[in-house]
């Protein structure tokens, strides 16, 4: 147990100084983060003119949300964003970390390059990818992939046509996730790389002596050792993708195929100036996130309990 440094008879004095030093930061947390949460809940229960709440209306704002034709679609899309990001965005950094770790060539350069997109402003990234995804002959991806496309068309006996990236049915959400992954995967990969470096090399040596091939070593030693890291990244990924907002808003494409729940909040607040409904929508999103986190922790606990049971038995 760590003991805080304190001289006994001044204990209360120290507590007060401690709180006084924290106070400025706590005020900021309260003003920018905690209070807005309460304010969201309060606002969502009132009618308002502009920002000024007028009458208490109970759950009317929540009920009104259902009249929005985009409501159900937005929840469906948001779930798809999360699912897609777990399939694409979650696996890629692990893969990248493994590959970069294994290469003794250009390791430093690769590390630095893959991290680079992470420092670019998110909005700039969206605007760049908007042009990459442009349909027609002048879209950048279409220019790059034209030789390939023509080859495929020739083999399958069809006429080559430039691809309509974002508007091709079912493609919008995966492509937006690809863009997000392009931006964020490098940073997560660095974390995994540090995790891999932290694994005791003796374990690998021992496995090699036992005759385990490299792939086997990776799957039975490296991956299990990253377990807790992977599980943390898993929930962080879900939480961050759940709030996807300006990426689908700014990239173009078909509204119904990509509208997200946070986009509804934004539309209510800043297009329609309906702050109570925006707040109601925010509250629903918070509840959904809390619910997901709760599931995560419960499952995590169960799994860990099974784990420790298994270990004691062995």
């Amino acid at each position: 147990m760590e003991v805080p440094i304190k001289i006994k008879n001044h204990r209360w004095k120290q507590d007060v100084t401690g709180w006084l030093i924290m106070l400025p930061a706590l005020i900021l947390f309260a003003f920018f983060i905690w209070e807005p949460l309460f304010e969201s809940v309060r606002l969502s229960l009132f009618a308002a003119k502009g920002y000024h709440t007028t009458d208490f209306v109970g759950l009317d704002n929540y009920i009104g949300l259902f009249a929005n034709p985009d409501f159900a679609i937005a929840w469906k899309n948001t779930s798809l964003y999360v699912l897609c990001s777990l399939v694409i965005g979650f696996v890629v950094p692990i893969f990248m970390a493994a590959i970069i770790t294994e290469s003794p060539f250009l390791r430093g350069i690769t590390r630095v390059s893959v991290y680079m997109p992470n420092i670019l402003p998110g909005l700039a990234v969206v605007l760049i990818w908007k042009f990459l995804f442009n349909a027609g002959d002048t879209g950048v991806l279409n220019i790059l992939l034209k030789p390939l496309g023509e080859l495929v068309a020739k083999i399958s006996g069809q006429v080559y046509k430039p691809f309509n990236w974002l508007t091709a049915p079912g493609w919008a959400i995966p492509l937006i996730i690809v863009m997000l992954t392009w931006k964020a995967a490098g940073s997560t990969a660095l974390i995994y790389m540090a995790g891999i470096s932290g694994i005791n090399p003796d374990i690998i040596e021992a496995a090699t002596i036992d005759g385990a091939k490299p792939l086997r070593r990776f799957f039975s030693i490296t991956l299990p050792n990253l377990g807790s890291l992977i599980s943390t990244m898993f929930i962080l990924q879900i939480i961050s993708v759940f709030q996807i907002l300006y990426e689908p808003m700014m990239i173009g494409g078909v509204h119904n195929n990509q509208v997200s729940v946070m986009m509804l909040v934004y539309e209510y607040a800043f297009d329609k100036q309906n702050y109570p409904k925006a707040a109601a929508m925010s509250v629903l999103i918070c509840i959904a996130l809390l619910f997901l986190t709760l599931i995560y922790f419960t499952v995590n606990k169960l799994v860990n309990r099974d784990d420790s049971k298994g270990r004691t038995k062995a």
């Binding site: 805080p4 440094i5 120290q14 507590d15 007060v16 100084t17 401690g18 709180w19 030093i21 924290m22 706590l26 947390f29 920018f32 983060i33 905690w34 209070e35 807005p36 949460l37 304010e39 969201s40 606002l43 920002y51 939480i239 961050s240 709030q243 907002l245 946070m262 909040v265 607040a269 702050y275 925006a278 707040a279 925010s282 999103i285 918070c286 996130l289 809390l290 986190t293």
Partner: peptide, 30 residues
């Protein structure tokens, strides 16, 4: 320093990581 109640403060801060501030951007702005 760890004054009395520091754990509660820390727990409250950790909770904000789970409910990210973007969702309350409207109230924040107001």
């Amino acid at each position: 320093l760890k004054p009395k109640g520091h754990k509660v403060v820390f727990a409250l801060v950790m909770a904000t990581m789970l409910i990210p501030p973007t969702t309350s951007i409207v109230a924040q702005y107001v």
